[in-house]
Write a protein that binds this DNA or RNA. Sequence first.
DNA 1: ACCCCGATCGTA
DNA 2: ACGATCGGGGTT
Length: 169
Amino acid sequence: MSNTILPRSFYERDTLCVAKDLLGKVLKFADYSGVINEVEAYIGQADSACHAVRGYTTRTAVMFGAAGFSYVYLIYGIHHCLNIVTEREGFPAAVLIRGIDLYRPVHLSLDGPGKLCKKLNITKKNNQMNLTQCHDFCIYDSSIQLEYIATSRIGIRVSTDKLWRFKII
DNA sequence: ACCCCGATCGTA
DNA sequence: ACGATCGGGGTT
């Protein structure tokens, strides 16, 4: 398993490429490590499902910022969701981490962005953190190459023609 | 100051 | 397939 932290240049690319490439990579947060197995892409103001569709606001500011930063928000008043900002500065986009196979400190399949954040104790306090410079919160490179499927995004009632959810099979 | 609704989850 | 749930983003 690689110990190389994915650099800014990894995230500062086309969001669909970043999303697919994140499959099989290792999410590290505090004492937790797990292999990413499901993600979704949210891309720019032309994507009506993207939070930034209505432009620059307090909440979406981080999506307009530098790639490789976390975007954590509360959904349904209950669940937190973890995203990683992508693309160049000024272009709002991110990849939602929907599932990981946790292998440290315990083996556990975490399917669903809310469950994932709850188990790892990721909340808004972890919003806007730089994932490219610290071993406490980052994503490690990996040579794992796996097949995946592309589907429409979960819980989204618009743009269902966009197959921007990617899941390892 | 307040209204509205959602990038979910668990149960059926 | 569907309803519970409620914090906070966006607008007044």
